[in-house]
């Protein structure tokens, strides 16, 4: 199947998960956005050699995935997709930073290796949290929540349009790409040269479409402002969710439970 089709189906799948009916799905979107934001801030606030402190943070995605009944293989696949990008960013760490930081028996582990590991862990945690947020809330609801949290409306509208027309653009790109492939007779055709013209055409078509959309909006009385439906519901359960997770992250960040547990175990069994 065409790579673009697979990507679109995957994206639609992620949106379908958001229609679930668990307690996590039912939490107010604003609360979920704030908790995810606190989580990400806590995770990225560690210094680059940190691993111990990050381990307890894996609890949050694990609990959320279990409670929201999200399929782990799907999320794992999505996380693996980003691996090459992270490795590209941290690939030179082991080569540039060779100072020994840990020693396990006779094996010396350099600071570069630790920082690469820490980078991987942090990326998985933050991207995992973002994926869980989208899979339990839906992109549109997140945008609306961000607006209600004070993000300017113009950004929300941009994000909503981007999301809506991503599918349309992907379908157009897929059709153009298939037409190119079919006329390349199984070979690479004119190679990279034809992609320049193809993307140019896509851009122009997008432009024309944008004009048509604007026309349809004007036809329906659009005057520059979106009149969205405001749903103000913020229950005690939402507040408990927000406070309990925020306090947990704060404790994890300041108390370092992994080190405490280690000291306790080594203290109890010297």
């Amino acid at each position: 199947m065409n790579a673009i089709t697979t990507a679109v189906i995957d994206l639609k799948q992620l949106e379908l998960f958001a229609q679930g009916d668990t307690q996590v799905h039912g939490r107010d979107a604003r609360v979920k956005v704030l908790v995810t934001l606190f989580f990400i801030l806590s995770v990225i606030s560690y210094h680059r050699y940190e691993i111990n402190g990050l381990l307890p943070f894996t609890l949050f995605p694990i609990i959320m995935v279990c409670r929201a009944e999200l399929p782990i293989p799907y999320l794992a696949r999505k996380m693996l997709l980003i691996c090459p990008f992270i490795l590209l960013i941290g690939a030179f760490n082991p080569l540039l930073d060779r100072s020994t930081l840990w020693q396990v028996g006779s094996i010396e582990i350099s600071g570069g290796c630790i920082s690469l590991l820490s980078l991987l862990l942090r990326s998985f945690l933050t991207i995992g949290a973002a994926l869980i947020l989208v899979a339990t809330t839906g992109f549109t609801t997140i945008c609306q929540a961000l607006e209600r949290l004070g993000m300017p409306e113009v950004f929300t509208v941009q994000l909503l349009f981007l999301h809506r027309y991503l599918f349309v653009l992907a379908e157009e790109a897929e059709r153009a790409s298939r037409a190119r492939e079919l006329r390349s007779c199984g070979s690479t055709g004119r190679g990279i040269g034809s992609f320049g013209s193809l993307t140019g055409h896509l851009l122009l078509r997008t432009w024309q479409r944008a004009e048509r959309i604007h026309t349809t909006m004007l036809s329906r009385g659009f005057t520059g402002q979106f009149h969205g439906q405001r749903r103000e519901r913020f229950s005690h359960a939402d507040l408990t969710f927000l406070i309990s997770w925020s306090v947990t992250f704060l404790l994890m960040r300041t108390m370092e439970p992994a080190t405490l547990l280690g000291s306790f175990i080594t203290g109890a069994f010297p």
């Binding site: 048509r212 349809t216 009385g221």
Partner: peptide, 30 residues
């Protein structure tokens, strides 16, 4: 524009809101 309702050829151009409900509500809210 309130008097003349126009349905365009390509529905994808006309449906831009997150859900069908929101899209149909777009005109009346305006």
């Amino acid at each position: 524009r309130r008097t003349v309702g126009m349905v365009f050829q390509y529905p994808d151009d006309q449906l831009f809101m997150p859900t069908v409900f929101e899209d149909v509500a777009f005109g009346p809210r305006n």
